[in-house]
Design a protein around this nucleic acid. Sequence first.
DNA 1: GACTAAGCGAGACGGTACGTCGCGTCTTAAA
DNA 2: TTTAAGACGCGACGTACCGTCTCGCTTAGTC
Lengths: 203, 203, 203, 203
Amino acid sequence: MGHERAEETEGSRASRRREAILDATRELLAELGVQGLTVEGVAARAGVAKTTIYRRWRSKDELALAVLIDMVEQFVSVPDLDDTRDELVAFVESAVRILGTTLMGRVMRGLVSDLAADPELARAFRERVVATRVAEVHRLVERGIERGDLRPDTDRELMHEMLFGPVYYRLMLSGAPLEDGLAERVVDAVLPAFASQSLASPR
Amino acid sequence: MGHERAEETEGSRASRRREAILDATRELLAELGVQGLTVEGVAARAGVAKTTIYRRWRSKDELALAVLIDMVEQFVSVPDLDDTRDELVAFVESAVRILGTTLMGRVMRGLVSDLAADPELARAFRERVVATRVAEVHRLVERGIERGDLRPDTDRELMHEMLFGPVYYRLMLSGAPLEDGLAERVVDAVLPAFASQSLASPR
Amino acid sequence: MGHERAEETEGSRASRRREAILDATRELLAELGVQGLTVEGVAARAGVAKTTIYRRWRSKDELALAVLIDMVEQFVSVPDLDDTRDELVAFVESAVRILGTTLMGRVMRGLVSDLAADPELARAFRERVVATRVAEVHRLVERGIERGDLRPDTDRELMHEMLFGPVYYRLMLSGAPLEDGLAERVVDAVLPAFASQSLASPR
Amino acid sequence: MGHERAEETEGSRASRRREAILDATRELLAELGVQGLTVEGVAARAGVAKTTIYRRWRSKDELALAVLIDMVEQFVSVPDLDDTRDELVAFVESAVRILGTTLMGRVMRGLVSDLAADPELARAFRERVVATRVAEVHRLVERGIERGDLRPDTDRELMHEMLFGPVYYRLMLSGAPLEDGLAERVVDAVLPAFASQSLASPR
DNA sequence: GACTAAGCGAGACGGTACGTCGCGTCTTAAA
DNA sequence: TTTAAGACGCGACGTACCGTCTCGCTTAGTC
């Protein structure tokens, strides 16, 4: 049984396999979630042997994380809107929308427990997913301070946690909807603590 | 082969079994986490047949949740400290401490993914665990408004999410430590947005 | 929940229970065979507790055997037809018909393996079921010898085995049908060996 | 954890496993009978995973049947003894001896009830076990007719049932011993009905 | 252009745990 | 005291995936 067909599209054999596996993983994640994802299922869907998967990823969680990282890397940074509140709202809003409407929320919920069990995986997650957001928050805060919107001693780390904590809390624990106005409400609940005098009472 | 021995302690047979199972579950959760928890392991540890477990809980997640609920129910409410900020700090601090030092944090992390997969479980979690916290926040906010510390239109729901979101964010995603000063920092980052004029800029 | 109703029909409570259990057993044997018979099923169908069944029969096989014995005891002996061949044919024919068309064949097939495993059960089976047939064969042979149809040294035991062996062989192993002409063919295949000179070549 | 060791004896991996399983099955059948045979027991004894057994046989009965078929296939056909009675006696005698002294009788008794419950199994049994005997009887009858010992219209099917029915009847129902003289007595009880004139009064 | 080493599919395998079934024993409460 | 109701320990069932392992066939890359 010939394994390769002539009509293959592009890239090396290795990278074609890789894409086939990731595609299958994405599909199965969308259909069944992380729980329902099985290496055997991915292998079958991708037309690939289980061995080929294990050669590249150590577990199904690592595979799911790979897909997640792929997604995160497609994010664009917030453009300069000349207003710190607007920028923060835009940033949080994009997270709310993505987590609420795409595969990403689902994958993240399914992955959390595995992060707890596998420190290696957790490290990769923090470095590739969390750090991306943190950096963006830093950038926005910096810009805000320069503009004079935020106090110079603004705690970037805390800002990041105050902005995203509530969003993830809804996603993973409270079950409350990731609705449209959420980003705005969260930003306005945080901003007074970090705003300089000039940028007074919101709402 | 008599199954019961005379030296049994107290309660009906059913409730004795129930306790034995929950005890074994607690021990195994502490040793191995939710991931490592197996019905077979619990049965062996509790000296009980698997069927006896399945007769009461539909899955290991339901079992773990039962343990979690047991824990939550032991929480005491925050006493009247005559200062809203102090009360909020105390409240968040107790959550930080419990999640950071007891079994509870571990169980919660392990449970999140299963909540995503089992709506029934998620419902129970919200009703028994989340709702408890929400109610306490409501109580504190009410007290704060009466005292004149908080604005009368304070959004209780949002307050709850702003206070606990960051804590759980650390626990589950960022991996940052649940350290001592955290509660205070979180409360101070939120309070300005909800404080009445009289209770001005903290720190 | 009242266990007894006033409208009960007849017999002592014990014998009423006994009949209810045997009835339920018969029904379930007919529907599912010995394999599908379960003590739990019988208890449910009879509206009786499992304990009540175990108090009377040690296992489901003993229960099935009780039903079988009930059936066997309803058999009538072959009347004097004034011809030994006719009598033997009539006797074998009744066995063929009963095994082929009633519950009895089914129960017997299902019971055989259990007889092998439980000597106690096997003993009861031989004493209550096999012995009945043996005695009848003895009676017929005696009558045949008196009439001068059979040789005086006819081996009654062997006669019994030659007549019924083939019938059970079909029922349990070969799967060949228990059809109408079978009895006659079996009798005619055996008779020449035991017939006295006067009763020469049949067919 | 290499699963294979260099010291393995012969055959492909698959056939080695197969033999290990069948060997273990044989041993356990001898020790405990079909009733006591469990897939789990076989797996443990053979040093093989349960799944490996289920991959090849659908149930423990199918497994036991496989062992039975193995045995049946080792039978040798009756040589030409130049006398039909002698040949038939030799044939029946070999069956009596094998059923009475080897594992085969035990397995057969244990299997009968399962044949009743599983048509697929019954079919296999008939095709692989019963048919073998039938064919041999056919061969002997043919030879007997050619020799002039048997009537040309001898019913081969009936002959088969008359010869083996009584043997299995003892094995499975009456419990009478499968003793030495049995074969001779059975053959002599049947032969007169099928013998040509020339081969007169036996015994 | 043939040869070889790596990559691959296919899938068998040992293993762990699953959730279920029915056994025969027991506890409990009602009648 | 007998019973119905049913919880319980137990042993086995058959299944699902895990991650590892042969086993030949492809297919690049090297000579």
